[in-house]
């Protein structure tokens, strides 16, 4: 095991941090004693019917996001430009599959018996449009746009929402979210690094993503609005979430 990956040469660093071995060491730290994403002995807190219903709506939308991420990440393996990216995306595929599974399991714990029907009923229209658009980019084999939409935009949206939700959720939901957030951080890092390198070499790509961004922003902000409603956040809190998302995109120098 390498002591400090930052001491490696760039190509060796990328090979190391995109490897199964690295993923394996990372998840061991926070998943080894969990079952369905939370402590096996964590106790269910009492939740009133209204809050339970709101939580179910939020979780249904998390499932939509994670199913989109699972399908997009797996499709991106086919178009990844190199083997290390393929292997990293394979770890991401397993992560996204796990996220979908733990959210579905949480829904079952909350008494949902037909998750598919519930998701179809409660899915945010903007998030569904985002999902279609993302999968269109993947099937169109547009690596940079798909990576931007998936590992920067979608992951950033999930990151800010999950972090906010985890802070006030019941213990079990919070533990599930904390594990997911740790994975999202890795996925965002991959997206930012891979795209950042490409953007620094290609002003044309910068312009292309800058032109494309407003379309995704509109869908993300509409999804955030719907999620904020389910989480009972006020306008200021919703603005903070939007700002958090925009800051992630700003890190790539793609604002305005």
């Amino acid at each position: 095991m390498i002591d400090d990956v930052h001491e490696l040469r760039t190509d060796e660093f990328l090979a190391e941090v995109h490897s199964f071995e690295f993923w394996f060491q990372s998840i061991e730290g926070y998943l080894s004693d969990s079952t369905w994403g939370h402590d096996a002995d964590a106790e269910e807190e009492a939740i009133d019917d209204e809050d339970r219903d709101r939580l179910i709506s939020v979780l249904c939308n998390y499932c939509v996001g994670e199913a989109a991420a699972l399908e997009a990440a797996s499709g991106m393996i086919q178009i990844a430009p190199d083997r290390h990216s393929q292997i990293f995306l394979a770890t991401q595929v397993a992560d996204e599959g796990r996220h979908l599974e733990v959210f579905l399991h949480r829904l079952a714990e909350l008494g949902v018996t037909d998750a598919d029907a519930e998701i179809a009923k409660r899915a945010s229209p903007s998030l569904l449009v985002f999902k279609d658009r993302l999968l269109e980019l993947v099937s169109g084999k547009d690596w940079e746009s798909a990576l931007f939409a998936q590992n920067v935009v979608l992951e950033s949206l999930e990151f800010v929402v999950f972090r906010r939700h985890a802070a006030e959720a019941d213990t079990i939901t919070s533990q599930v979210l904390e594990g997911v957030i740790k994975d999202e951080r890795r996925h965002m890092g991959f997206g930012e690094n891979e795209l950042g390198r490409r953007l620094s070499r290609s002003p044309k790509l910068q312009q292309r993503l800058r032109d494309f961004r407003p379309e995704l922003d509109a869908l993300v902000l509409a999804t955030l609005k719907e999620t904020a409603h389910h989480l009972e956040l006020d306008a200021e809190e919703e603005r903070v979430l939007g700002k958090g998302y925009l800051e992630s995109v700003e890190r790539l120098g793609l604002l305005g």
């Binding site: 199964f20 699972l70 599959g97």
Partner: peptide
Amino acid sequence: KRFLATQTLDEARHV
């Protein structure tokens, strides 16, 4: 899909 997600990672590990 979720099973195939684990298989995808298994295959990547084998590679």
